[in-house]
């Protein structure tokens, strides 16, 4: 019986700026950015739900723009800036979106959360005061099975208001419902 041998593929090496830090990483050349982040850089905050570009879970920011890390070849990211959920907080201070996602229950199981946070961050950088409809459109590439999205919209709106300098708080109805 012929033994099939895997060809030992040489590793590729690239330079990235990951969450602000210049990083060199070596990996099998056919790996996706998702795999390199999780397996070679230990950044498991980036999750995956299908690996086919059909759910948005693995979204990271590449040069500030949301991309599907499951469909981005890591080799193609050489020299680029990558931002993952691990890079959102400034030291121990959470990003306003992280604060509002935590407070409003916009993260339930938390699995899709990193993707939503990063898309929302990119949205607010481009459009600091998005309407509800603009938020829906921007987040239309991320599936969440827990929340029904409503708390996510409210969290984005609240964070947007705070980032604009308003002393905004969650509406009572958001936290307590109607009675």
């Amino acid at each position: 019986m012929a033994s099939r041998r895997r060809k030992p593929a040489g590793k590729a090496q690239i330079s990235l700026v990951v969450n602000g830090e210049p990083t060199e990483v070596a990996f099998s050349p056919h790996k996706t950015l998702l795999e390199v982040l999780r397996e070679d850089l230990g950044l498991t905050g980036t999750k995956h739900g299908c690996e086919l570009g059909e759910c948005g879970t693995c979204t990271v920011l590449l040069d500030g723009q949301p991309v599907l890390s499951c469909l981005a070849l890591a080799l193609a990211c050489d020299g680029k800036r990558v931002e993952t959920v691990e890079g959102m907080a400034r030291g121990a201070v959470l990003h306003p979106l992280q604060e509002t996602f935590a407070d409003l229950g916009a993260a339930q199981c938390g699995y899709c959360t990193p993707g939503f946070l990063l898309v929302a961050k990119a949205l607010l950088e481009e459009n600091p005061s998005p309407t509800r409809d603009q938020i829906k459109q921007a987040l239309a590439g991320n599936l969440c099975r827990c929340t029904g999205y409503l708390k996510i919209y409210e969290a984005v709106e609240l964070a947007a208001a705070r980032m604009q300098g308003e002393e905004a708080e969650a509406k009572e109805e958001t936290l307590y419902g109607r009675r």
Partner: peptide, 23 residues
């Protein structure tokens, strides 16, 4: 009273370890 969940910060910072995150 409306509260943050005890695991909320871990979840919004990507620190929650799901089974596939174990190496």
């Amino acid at each position: 009273t409306a509260q943050r969940k005890v695991d909320a910060v871990a979840k919004v910072t990507g620190q929650t370890l799901f089974a596939d995150d174990l190496f």
